[in-house]
Computed example of a mutant assay.
Amino acid sequence: MVVAMLANSPPLLEFDLLRSFVAIAESGSFTRAAEQVFRSPAAVSMQIKRLEETLGKSLFLREARQVRLTPEGEVLLSYSRRLLKLNQEAVSQFVAPTIEGTVCFGSPEDIANSVLPQVLAQFARSHPAVAVNVIAGSSTELLSRLDSGELDMALLTAGNVGQDPTRGEVVFTEPLVWATRSGGLAVESQPLPLAVASRGCCWRSMALNALDKHAIEYRIAYACDQSSGMQAAMEADLAIAPIPQSHMRAPFVQVDAKWGLPELGEYQLLFEHRKELGPAGNALASYIVNAWKTPR
């Protein structure tokens, strides 16, 4: 039920609807909000429709590249934040944390800067007594730190040069796509200018192998260990780059098929951990695996 109705009483709003509403308002996108609340964009859109029907008001102005709050939506946002905060405080008063400790977690830099903060924020609300220390780095570096005992667990990208293919559980698979700045001219240049990670990265290997296979001339215009450097090169319209489809953000767009670039296939995200984790580590490991395996 969208609302719980009492005789001659106003409707009671569901907290799941309010969480999705706040996520959209703060991110400016139904797609990004869906990632944060671990639902599909269609499911989030349906939630907002139900919320608008309940209140009899339009909450968002849907534009080409973003959504904006209506005046009524601005009012509801203030109430929603206060209600969610009050709900969290009330629950905290009665539900004492049963698991505590510190977990050292490793992640590739692009994941650590994009999806992971939202996942860990939700974990923190469920397990407030567990401290998570995050170390970002390359997958091969993270595996080395895991083996040396510096890390308890790590997310890794599969297929990097020199990486043991037997390590890690596949938790997420998605297409790797060509990205360029919206309205940019880099994709028209010959040879094709690329922004890629340093040697050994699976994204780089997948992109160069695909171009070589189709005899497309290219040059490495920008090489960087961090995805932020690749994004800077694309934003300056110096190059195009191979990135996971879920990482596509304005002002970047997927290269149109008319340019004839080869498909890159799918890349995999892996999860690896040391054998003995303890209660805190087991709780986080289960949460991470479920978060990425749940359709978003």
Rank of each mutant, 00 (worst) to 15 (best):
N8G: 15
L13T: 15
D16T: 13
L18F: 10
S20F: 00
V22F: 03
I24C: 12
A25L: 05
A25Y: 02
E26Q: 07
A34M: 01
E35G: 11
A42V: 10
A42D: 07
Q47L: 11
I48G: 06
L55N: 03
G56C: 12
S58T: 15
R65G: 11
Q66F: 15
L69K: 03
T70P: 14
G73N: 06
L76T: 10
L76I: 09
Y79I: 12
K85T: 14
L86E: 10
Q88L: 13
S92E: 00
V95W: 00
A96F: 03
A96I: 03
T98K: 05
E100R: 09
V103F: 05
C104L: 08
F105C: 05
S107K: 08
P108D: 00
P117Y: 08
V119E: 03
A129T: 02
N133C: 13
G137Y: 02
L142Y: 00
L143C: 11
S144P: 15
S144W: 14
D147I: 09
D147Y: 04
M153L: 11
A154H: 13
L156F: 14
V170Y: 00
P175N: 10
G183P: 14
G184A: 13
L185T: 10
A195K: 09
V196W: 02
R199L: 15
G200V: 08
C201G: 03
S205G: 12
M206H: 08
A207V: 06
L211P: 08
H214P: 02
Q226M: 13
S227D: 03
M230W: 07
Q231S: 14
M234C: 05
I243V: 10
Q245R: 15
M248I: 11
P251V: 09
V253Q: 12
V255C: 08
V255Q: 02
D256V: 07
K258P: 03
P262D: 09
E263K: 07
L264Y: 11
E266R: 09
H273E: 07
E276I: 11
A283V: 08
S286W: 00
T294K: 09
P295W: 01
R296N: 07
